[in-house]
């Protein structure tokens, strides 16, 4: 895999930009897609957000100051894009965040790109009840198997707070799933 520093340099040089961008997309598309998908739940929205995320990265690469790692910067952009989409949706529909989450989960039942069984659908219902941060941390740790240090950089939250959030999320989800 190409080193991040080299990739960023190549993205900034016009003669190597196109090739470097292709490498960037190929390297991160799946990881970012699944991160976004677990926030917005349906494929079409995830596809929109993912494309916008990469376009924003491409256009703002000069603004990347290198203080954090490239992937965590990209995760931050992806997270912001996904959350902004949800905010716009709830505003346009005139409903609260919680109501939107409920509707998103209900729509999963008819979603052709959701093959989850009863327990997986119930997990989504449980996730919809969690605070935003706990939901993000749970998905990044449990499903994406990210290290706390990586999540900390991406979400700009201390490792201690993340561990607490994850622990709480797991307890709440387990309690929800054990309910009849």
């Amino acid at each position: 895999m190409i080193a991040e520093d080299t990739l960023v340099d190549d993205l900034r040089r016009p003669e190597t930009q196109a090739k470097a961008f292709e490498v960037l997309v190929n390297t991160y598309k799946e990881r970012l897609y699944w991160h976004i998908r677990r926030i917005v739940l349906n494929h079409d929205d995830a596809d929109d957000v993912l494309q916008n995320t990469f376009i924003k990265i491409y256009k703002n690469i000069d603004g990347f100051n290198g203080e954090s790692q490239l992937y965590s910067w990209m995760y931050r952009i992806a997270t912001n894009e996904a959350l902004t989409l949800l905010k716009k949706k709830s505003k346009n529909m005139g409903i609260s965040d919680a109501e939107l989450q409920e509707r998103m989960v209900s729509n999963l039942e008819a979603d052709v790109y959701f093959n989850g069984d009863e327990i997986e659908l119930k997990l989504q219902r449980a996730l919809a009840t969690l605070p935003k941060k706990q939901k993000l941390v749970f998905n990044m740790k449990y499903y994406q198997d990210m290290k706390y240090e990586e999540i900390s950089e991406a979400l700009q939250t201390s490792v201690g707070a993340l561990k607490a959030s994850y622990h709480l999320a797991v307890k709440k989800l387990e309690a929800f799933l054990k309910e009849d």
């Binding site: 494929h43 990469f54 790109y113 959701f114 989850g116 327990i119 997986e120 449990y142 799933l177 054990k178």
Partner: peptide, 27 residues
């Protein structure tokens, strides 16, 4: 913490065929 947990290992999401292969061209 999830040892022996009731949490499912997968979340049931899928993507259309060839979605990732065609993504570069779309972007």
């Amino acid at each position: 913490p999830e040892k022996g947990s009731v949490l499912p290992k997968s979340d049931g999401f899928g993507v259309p065929d060839n979605y990732f292969e065609e993504l570069n061209a779309k972007i």
